[in-house]
Simulated assay, not measured.
Amino acid sequence: MAFAIAACSGGGAARKRDSEGRVLPTLAEQDPTGTLYAKSVSDAARGECDERTLDVLTCFSYRGHGYEGAQTALGQCLIATGDNTEGLDWIRRAADAGWPDAQKLLAQILLAGDVATRDGVEAAKWAKLYSRNPSLLSLGVQPDRNLALAFQGEITSEQNTEADRRVAAWVPRYWAPTSQVDQRVQRSCEVEGRRPPPARQDVPLITVPEVY
């Protein structure tokens, strides 16, 4: 995936307008139903990580905060296709922002040590952050107990204490892109959004003469 020319975000302080002066939607507003986003994330969860899915997830991921689901899915796809280093970077960005799925996944990866150097303390930190994630708790969603069970007998009391110290010091960080994606990737998540409503036609007021 090349990083080169045009940014995926539709930012800029001044909003673009069409020939009739109507404000044009930004890229973030062009997928009002979220179907492309949801499909791409679902494809990644199933391991269907073709070039098209990678492009779409990259485009969404480069919108930054608010697209941590795409960043997590992109990380999964990159790892599935053999790019472990960049895949972990994307998962960590989403985890740093407080995305619970990314925190859980990062804990599992660091504990297993299959695609990253095993780090019991850091894995326990992310597992604890996941289990206490306010995004889950506020919705009444119970964290996956299997994650906690996976740590039984895997870390020492000293490591657990250090993990608690890191949890207490943790604050969310929101990743912002410092590079750009090329135009092919940029176009991959540009979809037609809602068309603006037609201009209102003013109906002339019809008056009836006073007959009394």
Score class of each variant (00 low, 15 high):
Arg173Thr: 06
Trp175Cys: 02
Asp119Trp: 08
Ala107Val: 01
Lys104Thr: 03
Ile109Thr: 11
Pro25Leu: 04
Val121Met: 15
Thr26Pro: 12
Asp96Val: 15
Ala44Arg: 08
Gln201Arg: 07
Val211Ala: 13
Ile155Met: 14
Val191Gln: 13
Ala45Asp: 03
Tyr37Ile: 06
Arg46Tyr: 10
Val211Asn: 07
Leu110Pro: 01
Gln152Cys: 09
Arg17Asn: 03
Thr161Gln: 07
Ala112Ile: 09
Ala150Asn: 05
Ser19Tyr: 13
Ala112Pro: 12
Gln183Gly: 03
Leu139Thr: 04
His65Leu: 15
Ala95Met: 02
Ile109Cys: 03
Tyr37Glu: 12
Lys16His: 14
Asp182Trp: 09
Thr33Leu: 14
Asp50Thr: 06
Asp83Ser: 00
Cys49Arg: 07
Ser131Ala: 15
Trp170Ala: 04
Lys16Pro: 05
His65Pro: 12
Arg15Gly: 01
Glu48Tyr: 05
Leu106Gly: 01
Gln152Glu: 08
Val211Gly: 07
Thr81Gly: 06
Asp119Met: 09
Pro172Lys: 01
Ser61Ile: 05
Asp144Phe: 05
Val185Asn: 10
Leu78Phe: 07
Pro197Leu: 15
Glu192Ser: 14
Arg184Glu: 12
Thr35Gly: 07
Glu51Ile: 03
Ser138Leu: 03
Leu74Phe: 12
Val23Phe: 13
Arg184Val: 14
Glu192Met: 13
Cys49Met: 00
Phe60Gly: 00
Glu162Ala: 09
Phe151Pro: 02
Thr72Ile: 04
Lys39Ile: 12
Trp175Asn: 08
Ala169Lys: 10
Gly34Asp: 15
Ala199Ile: 13
Lys104Tyr: 02
Gln186Pro: 10
Ser135Ala: 13
Asp43Glu: 12
Arg52Ile: 11
Ala116Tyr: 00
Gly120Val: 15
Val41Trp: 10
Trp99Arg: 15
Arg92Trp: 00
Leu105Ser: 12
Arg22Val: 15
Ser131Arg: 11
Phe3Val: 11
Gln76Glu: 06
Glu210Ile: 10
Arg52Ala: 09
Ala2Gln: 10
Thr72Ala: 12
Cys59Lys: 02
Leu205Arg: 08
Thr35Tyr: 14
Ala163Asp: 14
Gln30Pro: 01
Leu88Lys: 03
Ala38Thr: 13
Ile5Val: 14
Arg92Asn: 02
Ser188Tyr: 04
Glu86Trp: 05
Asn133Lys: 11
Ala102Tyr: 12
Asp164Arg: 06
Glu86Ile: 05
Gln201Trp: 11
Gln152Gly: 10
Gly11Cys: 14
Val208Lys: 11
